[in-house]
C-alpha cells in the first residue's frame, strides 16, 4: 500500500543531471525512451539512483508501517473467514516490504541502513498510516480504498524504467488486487448489515476520506513538475491524474452502497469529465508528513521496539566470515 512519492522541490530538474557524462547520459535517456529497463549493473545518473532509492525505500517503509494499523485487527477479526483473510493480507504487505527493500538494495543501500533511517525519522512513509484504525470498519475501509489507491499508483510505477522495481511492483499489484476484493467484500457486508455495522462503516469512511484525498500527494498546481524524473520514468503520473482516476473508479461504488462522503462539492463535472472536489487541507498534510500526525510517534515507537527487541537475533545470525551480498531481484 503506497501513495505517491514525495518529491523534494529543492532537488528538481536541472540539478539532477549536473556533472554527468553527457554521452552516457544521452545513451541512458535513449534507452529509456525506447522503453528498455535499466538494470542494477547498468550505468545510471547519480540522481536517478538517489531518487529511486528514496522512492523505493519510502514505498517499503509504507508497507511495513502500513501493516501496523491493520495488524492490530488480526487478533480481533470477527469470525474465521475474516481472520484468515486479514492475516494473509497483512502478511502480504510485510512480504511487499521484503521485495521492495531487496529492490532498493540493488541500488546500493542496505536494508539495515534503510530501517535505521525509518526509525530515526530521516526517511518518510505514506502519510495515511499516521492515522488511527479505530474500529473494525477502519480496517475494511483501509483494505478497500487505500489498497485501491495504491494500485492506481503502483500500476503506473510498474511501467517505470528501473527493472527490479517494476518486477516487484507487478507482483505486488497482483496481490493488492486480492486485498481490494477482500476490502470491498468486507465493506459491502458492513454497509448492508445491521444499523450498528452501517454506522461503523460510515463513520470510518468519513474519517478516512481526508487522508485518502491526501494519499496521491499535493495538487499539481502546488507540486513541482519534475520533467526530468518524468523523462527518466521515475515518476509516471501526476498526482492529480491519479487522484482523478481513483475518484472515477471508486466514488460511484461508494455511493452505490448508500454511503456518503464528507465533501458537498464532490461530483463529476460533465463538461470536463473530471471530478470536482474541495481541496483537502494541505497544511495538515504537511504537518503530518513532518511528524505531527496523530500516530507518527506511536508507529515509529512500535517499529523501534520491534527493531530493538530483535537485535539479539540479528546479531546472533551475523557471521564474520560471511560478506554482504546484494539480493537478486
Amino acid at each position: 500500500m503506497y501513495g505517491n512519492a514525495y518529491i523534494d522541490p529543492k532537488k528538481a530538474n536541472s540539478s539532477l543531471v549536473d556533472g554527468e557524462n553527457p554521452e552516457k547520459l544521452a545513451e541512458f535517456e535513449a534507452r529509456i525512451a525506447r522503453g528498455e529497463k535499466i538494470e542494477p549493473k547498468d550505468w545510471m545518473p547519480a540522481m536517478y539512483r538517489k531518487q529511486l532509492v528514496r522512492m523505493i525505500e519510502q514505498h517499503a517503509h509504507s508497507e511495513i508501517i502500513g501493516s501496523l494499523p491493520e495488524g492490530t485487527w488480526i487478533t480481533r477479526a470477527p469470525g474465521f473467514r475474516r481472520k484468515l483473510a486479514l492475516m494473509a493480507k497483512v502478511q502480504d504487505e510485510v512480504g511487499h516490504a521484503q521485495l521492495l527493500y531487496n529492490a532498493a538494495e540493488t541500488l546500493g543501500k542496505s536494508r539495515e541502513d534503510m530501517i535505521n533511517d525509518l526509525i530515526s525519522g530521516k526517511s518518510k512513509y505514506s502519510n495515511v498510516f499516521n492515522y488511527p484504525a479505530k474500529t473494525w470498519a477502519d480496517s475494511a475501509v483501509i483494505a478497500w480504498l487505500i489498497d485501491a489507491g495504491a494500485i492506481v499508483n503502483q500500476l503506473a510505477n510498474s511501467r517505470g524504467s528501473y527493472g527490479p522495481y517494476c518486477r516487484a511492483l507487478e507482483r505486488i499489484c497482483a496481490e493488492e488486487s486480492f486485498h481490494l476484493k477482500y476490502g470491498h467484500d468486507n465493506v459491502v457486508f458492513l454497509a448492508t448489515g445491521t444499523s450498528k455495522q452501517r454506522e461503523m462503516v460510515q463513520d470510518a469512511l468519513t474519517r478516512w476520506w481526508p487522508p485518502i484525498m491526501h494519499f496521491f500527494g499535493p495538487s499539481d498546481k502546488d507540486s513541482v513538475h519534475s520533467e526530468t524524473l518524468m523523462r527518466w520514468k521515475v515518476k509516471m503520473a501526476s498526482n492529480d491524474d491519479m487522484r482523478q482516476q481513483f475518484l472515477n473508479m471508486y466514488v460511484p461504488k461508494i455511493w452505490d452502497l448508500g454511503l456518503t462522503l464528507p465533501d458537498a462539492n464532490l461530483k463529476k463535472n460533465e463538461e470536463t469529465g473530471k471530478w470536482d472536489y474541495t481541496e483537502p487541507d494541505w497544511e495538515e498534510f504537511k504537518r503530518v508528513i513532518n511528524g505531527g500526525g496523530p500516530c507518527n510517534a506511536e508507529r515509529l515507537a512500535v517499529r523501534r521496539t520491534a527493531e530493538e527487541n530483535g537485535q539479539w537475533v540479528r546479531k546472533a545470525l551475523l557471521k564474520e566470515s560471511e560478506t554482504y551480498v546484494t539480493p537478486l531481484s
Binding site: I64, S67, G71, M87, V90, Q98, V313
Partner: peptide
Amino acid sequence: EWTGMGPILEEDIAFSSMAQ
C-alpha cells in the same frame, strides 16, 4: 501477534504463515 513485530521481516512472514 508477531505480524509486524518480528526480529527480521522473514520471521514476521514465517510466523504469520504458520499462524494461518
